[in-house]
Amino acid sequence: MPSVSMTVNGKAVTGEVEGRTLLVEFLRQNLNLTGTHVGCDTSQCGACVVHVNGKSIKACTTLAVQAEGAEIITIEGMATNGDLHPIQAAFKEHHGLQCGFCTPGMVMSAADLLQRNSNPSEPEVREWLEGNICRCTGYQNIVKAIQAAAQAMRG
């Protein structure tokens, strides 16, 4: 079995995987980072979004071996020293989550948006979330949370 090494949330990790092992499987099963979720099997729902080398991707449509040497950030890596990341804090403040299942992917996707666009308009946020499905919230409070986070992060 191939061995794979990468940095996940700032920690170097190594694991034995098969060629076919998906990144999301490696994160959830080998590393017990179960915050990254699997909501579909056709790459639509976005519950599995993580960052690979600073870009958001779907961990269900990436092989673990493809992440060799990469820097991975998952939802577990967003809060620092127990303080919520501004996006996480804004989701809480603006009720941008209900059942919480899509939330990790939403937060990671939003984080990618805000590093590209520090002041997105409502349509820009909505369009960016094309790859993240939420069945609970109707998105309104997610959009509000992301815009509020943008404002907080701009300072």
């Binding site: 790459s43 976005g46 979004v49 094309e130 790859g131």
Partner: peptide, 9 residues
């Protein structure tokens, strides 16, 4: 094309 995550890969 697709969505932002698909466009990133």
């Amino acid at each position: 094309i697709g969505d932002p995550q698909v466009r990133n890969r």
